[in-house]
Design a protein around this nucleic acid. Structure first.
Length: 309
DNA sequence: CGATTTTGACCTGCGC
DNA sequence: GCGCAGGTCAAAATCG
């Protein structure tokens, strides 16, 4: 069913460059044929303008696709939050085992810390130390198993100040301090899960006393980040089928104020603005463009979905 | 050359 | 008091 596929190859600038290169090559080689001399320069320009228009249209269409994806994500998140609140109401009736499973699940997809403290007083009484101390939240991030770095990109700037191998886990634990503001007391511990080495467990202590360092990174981060020093240019070259992980609005990754703001954002207009900003940041991100191009050219995306979008 | 990471040494809290 | 484990410090190394 080859005809079912649309030609979704992202030519982007490639054709333009080819055009230019060919023209330059011809010029440099001095092999300008008589017939080519007759080709008016305007026609060449027209072709380029046409190409540019086509690429712009492509870009616009991708932006629209991303907007729709973001909107879908937001609606899914709202539904999930409804489920979370419903589950909290019924919590007294549920068994402890189910509760633990639920919390594991919420942690796994990024809802932790506040979510559990807000709906369970029992939990806070179980862990008096944590509730008395600075706020502690835990975030689970799935990474490429071949990626051995302990980097969890959450949009803040972190300075590593130590690493230690703990008794209960063969993989080392890295200690980070927030380096965006010198007075910021927030610390972060990152360690691979003992059960599943592909999962990074990031434990955050304290609250940021400054604005977010990079809002774009908060809403989007690539899952491959072997070295923060090479970020954000490091394209996902380690894997033949690169993936982009959207860590969209993970409450565990945000400061408390940010979390509250995100929870309050329900108005469709604001959602639209947020979606537009996300789309804008995505289209600016070379990693995302590369991943998207690879995914589409590899024909991973189903034709039916493309037609919907 | 400044910022960041690495890594061994040191400190601290806790259980025995 | 001792030993252990987790957490932090700081000098050296590394990177851009």
């Amino acid at each position: 069913m080859e005809t079912a596929w649309v030609d979704t190859n992202l030519d982007l600038n490639i054709d333009i460059f080819n055009h230019r290169n060919k023209a330059l090559k011809r010029e440099s080689e001095g092999e300008v044929a008589d017939s080519e001399v007759k080709v008016p320069l305007k026609q060449e320009t027209g072709v380029l303008v046409e190409e540019l228009n086509r690429v712009s249209a492509e870009n616009k269409r991708l932006t629209e696709m991303l907007t729709v994806v973001c909107e879908h994500y937001n609606s899914l998140q709202n539904k999930f939050m409804e489920l979370v609140s419903k589950n909290c109401e019924n919590e007294a009736a549920t068994s402890k085992k189910r509760k633990a499973e639920f919390e594991d699940y919420t942690n796994m997809i990024g809802f932790s810390g506040n979510a559990e403290s807000s709906c369970s007083d029992e939990e806070s009484s179980k862990r008096p130390k944590e509730s008395i101390k600075a706020e502690i939240s835990r975030v689970y991030v799935r990474t490429n198993p071949s990626d051995h770095s302990l980097i969890v990109r959450d949009g803040y700037q972190w300075r590593k100040y130590g690493q230690k191998v703990t008794r209960d886990n063969p993989s080392p634990r890295a200690y980070f301090k927030c380096s965006f503001a010198p007075s910021c007391p927030v610390k972060k511990k990152v360690q691979r899960s003992a059960e599943d080495p592909s999962i990074l467990v990031a434990t955050y202590e304290g609250e940021h006393n400054h604005a977010h360092s990079s809002p774009a990174e908060l809403s989007l981060s690539t899952s491959y980040n072997p070295d923060p020093r090479s970020a954000p240019v490091s394209a996902p070259t380690k894997c033949s089928a690169p993936t982009v992980t959207l860590e969209l609005m993970q409450p565990g990754l945000m400061g408390d104020d940010t979390k509250r703001q995100v929870q309050q954002i329900d108005a469709p207009g604001i959602q639209q603005i947020v979606a537009q900003q996300m789309a804008a940041s995505l289209t600016r991100d070379p990693n995302f463009a590369a991943a998207l191009a690879a995914a589409i050219s590899g024909r991973v995306v189903e034709q039916t979905r493309l037609e919907k979008w």
